[in-house]
């Protein structure tokens, strides 16, 4: 498979790991932002190739894990109402809320469906005009454009039975929060390649400068991750703190302007509570007032109290 096999090639992986070992002269601590990168590191055992003293700290870039308890409670509450179909991504279903998870709510009779795209939720809304179809939208800037598209599509079609429970999060405020937290050990970042595919790299420039940390936009295959680490270590060893792009086969520095326009049209920047971390200003994307009619939080009212 092109664009996959060459980035899983054992010879290239080992040669990049050797480069990292030869570059490293002192201990460094690097955070890979994205859960997809962490998955690759653990899946392939890449941490075993790194020299002693080079530490990877797994970042907060898993939208499923950082979705706050109160939003899961809210999703369960909405899904448990009559004549509601709740659609979400598969791995969202087993994340516990205060009491139970969506899988348990489904077992007790709620109509909860796994979808692969928000446009599948739109199809469900079209096919079930007598039901309220709610898409539980989690994700970073990566998934926000496609989720936003579903609202635009619903608006175009006048699909009054479609709404979205949105808990999108943004990467840069989380990086700032990590860098300003007391006793932070992070000296460099692997930025999330897919987020930058949408957003480009400009918003990382001030962070690299202000905190003097190298930020390497990195992909997800094993060789991507190791090349990202190599570039990060190279900068650290040389005392540089720049934004560089390892994932140039996908990421353009300006990002994807069409996708960004969808985000700007449908969402607005809001404070967001990250599960296990806390609330950061400007760290989320909420549905803007223009599309309030498609916001499940306003359609279904306040959820159950958080416990």
């Amino acid at each position: 498979m092109r664009f996959v096999d060459e980035f899983r090639d054992p010879e290239r992986v080992h040669s990049c790991a050797a480069e990292i070992r030869s570059l490293t002269t002192q201990p460094w601590t690097i955070m890979e932002i994205c859960g997809g990168q962490t998955h690759s590191i653990v899946r392939y055992g890449l941490d075993q190739l790194l020299p002693d003293g080079l530490t990877l700290v797994h970042g907060p870039g898993c939208p499923v894990c950082v979705t706050p308890v109160e939003m899961i409670n809210k999703a369960i509450d909405i899904a448990s109402q009559p004549d509601v179909i709740l659609c979400s991504y598969g791995d969202m279903l087993r994340v516990p809320g205060s009491g139970r998870d969506l899988l348990s709510a489904k077992a007790l009779g709620a109509d909860i469906r796994i979808v692969y795209s928000p446009l599948d939720a739109i199809k469900t809304a079209r096919a079930n005009p007598g039901k309220q179809v709610v898409f539980f939208a989690v994700g970073f800037e990566t998934t926000a454009p496609a989720n936003g598209m579903s609202i635009l599509q619903a608006a175009r079609e006048g699909l009054g039975n479609y709404s979205m429970l949105a808990t999108h999060v943004r990467v840069p405020p989380a990086m700032r929060a990590i860098l300003t937290s007391q006793g932070t050990r992070i000296q460099g970042f692997l930025a999330a390649g897919h987020v930058c595919t949408v957003m480009g790299i400009d918003e990382y420039l001030p962070i690299a400068k202000e905190f003097h940390v190298p930020i390497v936009v990195t992909g997800f295959e094993p060789l991507d991750v190791l090349q990202g680490i190599a570039e990060c270590v190279r900068q650290l060893e040389q005392g540089r703190a720049e934004v560089s792009n390892q994932y140039s086969r996908v990421v353009r520095s300006e990002g994807n302007p069409h996708a960004r326009r969808v985000i700007e049209e449908v969402f607005e920047i809001v404070p967001r509570n990250w599960r296990g971390i806390g609330t950061f200003p400007e760290s989320g994307l909420g549905i803007s007032s223009k599309y309030r009619d498609y916001d499940a939080e306003s359609r279904f009212g306040p959820g159950p109290p958080t416990s």
């Binding site: 054992p10 992986v13 899946r43 890449l46 075993q48 190739l49 499923v64 598969g90 791995d91 087993r94």
Partner: peptide, 22 residues
């Protein structure tokens, strides 16, 4: 043993395998 000669535990799944967003 991964294609790079590295070792990892291949565990049982906690439940059904669900499609991942993350």
């Amino acid at each position: 043993v991964t294609p790079f000669g590295l070792h990892r535990i291949l565990d049982l799944l906690s439940g059904e395998q669900l499609p991942r967003i993350c």
